[in-house]
Each structure stands twice: as structure tokens, then as C-alpha cells.
């Protein structure tokens, strides 16, 4: 009765009750399937976002590792230089006599670039001038400017 009434309401004509129930079942099943598909798509996009974030994070870590590897290689080269220099300095004496600090300390290497040299010279000149000014201020009891 209900099924026949329903079929008339939705304009399907005089279908048998079984057919209507089957039809409703198909519609419900389709709706449920669509809903499940939407959920799967949502989960997929959430996973994609997670994967993207993880990928970015991993990329950053790889970049950091590359920088650290470069630093480590530079450090190894410096240590080799230090050992060579110490061997030259200590000559016949055993190198183990050298203090630990001398091994791990990076020796200063004056720049050969003339532009840099000029800049460093000016920094030194500024610092020398600063000390002169400070001395003058101390002598004359100058103001705090």
C-alpha cells in the first residue's frame, strides 16, 4: 500500500510494491556509495596535503644536511691544513707536543682580493680613529653621544 502510494506520488505510475522497494533500495545504495566515494576523496586530499607537508619538510632537511655536509668537508680541509702547518712549525718535534687548540683552530688566511683588502683596511682605520676619539673624549671629559 505504502509503496504503491509512494510510486504514485513520485509519478512512477502503477509499479508493483516489490519494484518500488527495489528502486528505493537502488537509490539508497547509490547515495551511500556516493557518500563513501566523497569520504574517500576527502581522505585522499587530506593524505595528499600531509604528503606535501612531509615532502616539504624532508626537502628542508635534505637542504640542511647538504649545508652541514659542505661545512663538515670545509672543516676537514681546514684541519688537514692545520696539521700540515703544525708539522712545518714543530719540525723535528713530535706533533703531539702541540696544544689541542692549535689543531682545531682555523688559521687566519688573509684575503688576497684587493676589494676586500680595501674594505678591511677601512674597518681597521675606522677602529683606530674610534679609539683616538674615545681617548680625546676621556681627556676632555666629553659628552655621551
Amino acid at each position: 500500500m505504502i509503496a504503491q502510494g509512494f510510486s504514485r506520488v513520485i509519478g512512477l505510475g502503477p509499479l508493483s510494491g516489490l519494484s518500488v522497494f527495489a528502486l528505493i533500495g537502488i537509490v539508497v545504495w547509490e547515495l551511500w556509495k556516493t557518500n563513501t566515494d566523497i569520504r574517500v576523496v576527502r581522505t585522499d586530499s587530506a593524505e595528499d596535503k600531509d604528503n606535501d607537508e612531509r615532502f616539504l619538510e624532508l626537502n628542508q632537511k635534505v637542504a640542511t644536511l647538504l649545508v652541514e655536509t659542505r661545512d663538515a668537508s670545509r672543516r676537514i680541509a681546514q684541519l688537514q691544513d692545520s696539521i700540515l702547518e703544525l708539522e712545518n712549525t714543530y719540525g723535528a718535534q713530535p706533533i703531539s707536543n702541540a696544544p689541542l687548540g692549535a689543531f682545531i683552530n682555523e688559521a687566519a688566511k688573509a684575503t688576497k682580493e684587493s676589494a676586500k683588502k680595501a674594505m678591511l683596511k677601512q674597518i681597521i682605520d675606522d677602529n683606530v680613529a674610534l679609539r683616538k676619539k674615545i681617548k680625546l673624549r676621556l681627556v676632555s671629559g666629553g659628552s655621551k653621544q
Binding site: 688566511k109 688573509a110 684575503t111 676586500k116 683588502k117 678591511l120 681597521i124 683606530v128 679609539r131
Partner: peptide, 14 residues
């Protein structure tokens, strides 16, 4: 880096 690249005789001026 500035310290390390500074020529030794420059330091003596300070």
C-alpha cells in the same frame, strides 16, 4: 670571516 681574512699587520694597528 672578517677576523680570519684580516691581514695580520692590520690587527697590529689596534
Amino acid at each position: 670571516k672578517m677576523c680570519l681574512e684580516m691581514p695580520g699587520n692590520y690587527w697590529e694597528q689596534i
